[in-house]
């Protein structure tokens, strides 16, 4: 088993699986973006969107091989994104302090407090989505990489 990689495992040679995954993955990603940016109006938000987007990448890794998934989303980039999401969230909080408000008091960010709330929530949710997606994919790829080693 030492030589085998996920890319050569039997699961990647299943045509039905490959074709289905190819059709589904873009739709899952699109749905994740919908959940992310429509979270103001419908159920969902950054956390759910991040998990859904992460599962699309994980599905790609499962069906087409972990190495191809790592080529599309390199582990180093994922690490930056995981930190970046959390820093974006905290940064919005600090920006509120810098504008003269309390930590995470979004209303202070713009002239109109309601617009400020919208802007703050949007940015914060993007941060949540980035961190959740990259952590989920990273955890999966670390486990999968362990299997190959």
């Amino acid at each position: 088993m030492g030589e085998s990689t996920v890319g050569a495992s039997p699961v990647t040679n299943q045509p039905v699986l490959r074709v289905t995954a190819k059709v589904l993955i873009p739709l899952i990603m699109l749905f994740a973006l919908y959940v992310q940016f429509h979270g103001d109006f419908s159920p969902g938000g950054g956390f759910q969107a991040g998990v859904i987007f992460g599962s699309a990448v994980i599905l790609y890794g499962l069906v087409f091989g972990e190495q191809r998934a790592a080529r599309a989303l390199p582990p180093g980039l994922l690490r930056w994104l995981a930190c970046g999401g959390l820093l974006l969230y905290g940064g919005v909080g600090l920006a509120c302090i810098a504008s003269g408000g309390a930590f995470l008091e979004y209303g202070i960010l713009t002239e109109n407090p309601v617009d400020g709330q919208h802007l703050g929530i949007l940015l914060v949710e993007v941060g949540v989505g980035l961190t959740v997606t990259s952590v989920m994919v990273t955890i999966f790829s670390v486990f999968a990489g362990r299997r190959q080693a």
Binding site: G39, D40, F41, G45, L104, Y106, Q117, V124
Partner: peptide
């Protein structure tokens, strides 16, 4: 001013 109250509670 967000329709989904869960989002306003969680994020704000």
């Amino acid at each position: 001013g967000i329709d989904n109250m869960v989002t306003s509670i969680l994020a704000s």
